[in-house]
């Protein structure tokens, strides 16, 4: 118990309390905010839904059905939420090619963010689901990187590797590399569980925990992450290290041995 109470008095505790208070105030404000503002939002929303439905009919309905009810080639989209749309379309996974391999790969996205938002609005109107996170939800400011690391190793590393380099699943499926992936998409992936990835909803992985994970990834596999030891060799562990040791290590040593043992050039016979 002594330890526990010692932990409670974390130096950042005051900050956390303050943040919670601020967040609560903000939430209350949103609830009691002037109604006309909400009215205007609603109009914009229904416009977006209409536009989204048009886009949907052209680009998505052939697989997911005219009204998102799903079909033989694609699952039902009712209740997947705007976050799923933003992730799938934003990372270029959707629309998918007609003949799929083991899993739908990430590729260049073909819709603009505005169009994606409209699509997302339409799909969100089909059923309640996770919504696209706001930047402050995945902002890594004040996140606990160490805790994020623990969460990452417990929940994510088994598929995505220690630092998010990705890894193999069954029958040709794989967990993709998380290097250079927008924090928003990481957040959405945790929320929605795209393809074979399980979801980590807020009920079991609260927003703070997601932030910590994103912060950890940024720290160990971000753009500015140092690799103090030198070349990181893909971050894949002993296999790439072993190959390097054989090819460059032993290779260089054998080349040197050849030089050491070789006969010195003889003077040319005249």
């Amino acid at each position: 118990m002594k330890k526990l109470s010692a932990r409670r008095r974390h130096p950042l505790a005051a900050v956390v309390v303050l943040l919670f208070a601020l967040a609560a105030t903000g939430g209350l404000y949103a609830v009691f905010a002037p109604a006309d503002q909400a009215q205007a939002d609603e109009t914009a929303q229904s416009l977006a839904i209409d536009e989204g439905k048009k886009l949907y009919s052209v680009g998505c309905s052939s697989c997911h059905g005219a009204n998102g009810q799903g079909g033989s080639d694609g699952p039902s989209l009712a209740g997947v939420g705007s976050a799923a749309v933003d992730f799938q379309v934003g990372t270029g996974r959707m629309p998918a090619a007609t003949s799929q391999g083991a899993q739908v790969p990430k590729k260049k996205k073909i819709y603009s963010q505005a169009e994606i938002d409209q699509l997302a609005a339409y799909i969100a109107s089909l059923g309640v689901g996770p919504t696209v996170p706001k930047p402050e939800q995945y902002s890594i400011k004040d996140a606990d990187i160490g805790h994020g690391g623990e969460l990452f190793r417990n929940n994510c590393a088994q598929c995505h590797n220690f630092t998010g380099e990705g890894g193999a699943l069954t029958e040709g499926k794989y967990a993709p590399s998380l290097e250079g992936v927008d924090p928003k998409y990481i957040y959405e992936a945790m929320q929605t569980g795209p393809q074979n990835m399980p979801s980590f909803p807020d009920s079991t992985m609260p927003e703070e925990a997601k932030k910590d994970i994103i912060a950890y990834l940024d720290a160990v596999n971000g753009e500015d992450t140092p690799n103090p030891g030198g070349l990181k060799l893909g971050g894949l562990g002993p296999v790439s290290e072993g190959l390097f040791a054989w090819i460059f290590g032993l290779g260089a040593l054998v080349a040197t041995a050849v030089w050491v043992a070789a006969r010195t050039a003889k003077a040319k016979k005249s």
Binding site: G149, E150, R153, N154, A157, Q158, C159, H160, N161, F162, T163, E165, G166, G167, A168, A175, V220, G235, L236, G237, P238, V239, E241, G242, L243, A245, W246
Partner: peptide
């Protein structure tokens, strides 16, 4: 980059040295 050992955690790509 690997983290401390916990018997309930793991990473993919778990190989021994060559």
């Amino acid at each position: 980059a690997l983290g401390p050992y916990r018997p309930d955690m793991v990473s993919t790509g778990a190989q021994p040295d060559w």
